[in-house]
Each structure stands twice: as C-alpha cells, then as structure tokens.
Amino acid sequence: MNNGHRRAQAAVQTILRLTNLLMAGKRVAVIGHEPELAACLRAMGAQTLLTDPAAALLGHRVLAEEDAVAVADLVIGATEAHLPLLRDGAILACAGPRTGVDGRPAGAAGVLAGMPGTRVRDGITGYRLGPDREVFVLDMAC
C-alpha cells in the first residue's frame, strides 16, 4: 500500500467516524488531483465528481469545479471561492495537513476564517451562509 492510499484511507475513515454517513449514493466532489481518495470513496458506493480531467480515464464523472461543488453532498478540498456555490447542508472536509497555531486543518482555517460557527459535536462545526443555507465543516485533525 503506497502513501497516497494510506492517506486516502485515513481521510475516509475520519470522515466516516465524524459523520456516521453511509457513502452509498452520496455525491462527493473531490477538488484537485486525489485519485486514491476518489477510488476509496467510489468503492464505498459514492458518486464521485472530480475536477481533474484525467479522472475520466478511471471511470469518475468529471465536472467543472463550480458544477461539482453546487450539487455535492460532501466536498473535499473547497476554497473560499466555492462558498457561494455550496448547497444547503453540504459538508466540507479537507484531506490536507494541519496548519496554523490553532491546529485546524487548512480547509477549515482558510475557507471559513473569521466566520462565527456553531459547534454541532466533536469535530463538526456548522456555519450559516445565508438565511436558508448552512454548511458543516469537519475538523479532520480529530
């Protein structure tokens, strides 16, 4: 098992532990080049939406970032530019390493820095993006 597969499996296990989601049938957008992560999610029954054109060769659905983020139930690797596109109830996760003095993952620290959030439970924080839209961010460092 190479390092990419170990990292992908650890990310998937953390997401499952924090959310108790059943991946079968979930639309998961993976932003960037993460073939091992997409393969793990697809093996669990998720509909993988990737932004890397090379992923089409591996059987994944390829969409533009804006389109993938807008329909996804779970988004891995979102940035601040994606916030207006997220649907209500979407879950954001960052598979990257910890950053900053607060110890939060790069995704949570960079994407929603300065926004007040409500702790839902250990490792999950809810953020209101508007009157009818709330997204949830996973602290992958848990």
Rank of each mutant, 00 (worst) to 15 (best):
A90G: 00
I76K: 01
G130Y: 10
C94R: 03
A64S: 11
T51K: 02
M140V: 07
D73A: 00
D102G: 09
G117S: 10
T51A: 05
L138G: 07
L83R: 08
G100I: 02
A81W: 02
A78P: 05
K26W: 01
E80A: 14
D132T: 11
V75E: 02
C142T: 11
L50K: 00
A46N: 06
P97C: 10
I31L: 15
D102L: 12
P84W: 09
L112V: 15
E65S: 10
V71A: 09
R17D: 15
G117V: 08
A8P: 08
L86D: 03
G77Q: 07
R61L: 12
I31D: 06
D73M: 00
A95Q: 07
A43L: 14
V135S: 04
A141Q: 14
D132C: 11
R27F: 02
A90V: 00
T19C: 07
F136G: 05
P84S: 12
I15M: 15
A106H: 06
L41I: 09
A29C: 11
A29R: 01
N3G: 05
V111S: 05
G114E: 08
R42N: 14
C142M: 14
A90I: 00
R133P: 10
A68C: 03
A43K: 13
A106R: 10
G114Y: 04
D88W: 01
A46E: 06
L129A: 10
R6C: 11
C40K: 08
H60M: 15
E134W: 04
N2C: 12
D88G: 03
P131T: 13
G123D: 12
I91W: 06
A38L: 11
G117I: 06
G77K: 00
P84G: 11
L112Y: 03
L22G: 15
T125W: 08
A141D: 15
V71E: 11
A90W: 00
V111F: 04
Y127V: 06
L129T: 08
L74W: 02
T51Q: 05
D139W: 07
I91S: 02
R61I: 03
A29P: 03
I76L: 11
I76W: 04
G96P: 01
C94N: 12
L37F: 12
V75K: 02
L63W: 04
A95H: 06
T118V: 14
G130C: 12
Q13I: 07
V101P: 08
V30F: 07
A39T: 14
T51Y: 02
L22M: 14
L85E: 03
A56E: 11
A46R: 01
